[in-house]
């Protein structure tokens, strides 16, 4: 049962990754560990015209994703030690004293949220900047966004403001985990599947 959520306006995210780095700064994360990742979705066909010009039907947009603190969290279910757990307020946290670094949550999460810290041998992930939230401040990523496309708040509030849409191509079916992630769809998203669009910046979002 999650009570807080993120909102991401994919129609206006530039992909600048200020959110990713402000998060890394807040959490002191070395390169290779990304609590927040920005996925670049691109699909297109290019054709040369009879005039010798170029035509394209490109669709491109970005998805900024941290941890969605799902209402039905696959990671919590999978964790053998209960290190990964839901707080009463719905935030999904990792107890570093219990984690054995088996990385099973990494497999179980359809969003790539849990990150393995090699040096410490345990998993880490976005905690909604719980300390900030308890102080009444937004998470570091949200207040960093130069385009103001990220929001944080109680789920009910986000739904009221933006509607209950929790997916955009190619995010997994939200019925799997009920993510507390609300999305404004990029206008091109409806063509993305037909264009066989895919995430093309793998080296930027995975090790």
């Amino acid at each position: 049962m999650s009570t807080f959520g993120f909102f991401c306006d994919t129609s206006a995210c530039s992909g600048c990754k200020t959110c990713q780095v402000s998060c890394k700064d807040k959490n002191d994360l070395d390169a290779g560990i990304r609590f927040r990742r920005v996925y670049e979705v691109v699909g297109a066909n290019w054709n040369k015209t009879d005039e010798g010009a170029w035509e394209h039907d490109i669709v491109a947009y970005n998805l900024s994703i941290g941890c969605n603190h799902c209402e039905n969290p696959a990671c919590v279910k999978a964790c053998p030690t209960k290190a990964m757990h839901a707080e009463l307020d719905g935030m999904i946290l990792i107890d570093p004293n219990k984690c054995i670094g088996c990385r099973y949550c990494e497999w179980a999460c359809p969003y790539g949220a849990p990150q393995y810290n090699k040096l410490k041998g345990i998993m880490q992930k976005c905690d909604f900047c719980r300390d900030y939230v308890l102080e009444g401040k937004p998470p570091a990523c949200v207040s960093s966004c130069p385009m103001r496309v990220l929001e944080f708040g109680p789920i009910s509030q986000l739904i009221e403001k933006h509607g209950d849409n929790r997916s955009v191509y190619p995010l997994p079916d939200p019925s799997i985990t009920r993510p507390a992630l609300f999305i404004r769809k990029h206008p091109g998203a409806k063509l993305a599947k037909k264009l066989n669009a895919s995430i093309i910046n793998r080296e930027e979002v995975k090790e």
Partner: peptide, 12 residues
Amino acid sequence: KGAVAGGVVLTS
């Protein structure tokens, strides 16, 4: 403290 998942000792 809450931010335990993130409250990491600087390692690099």
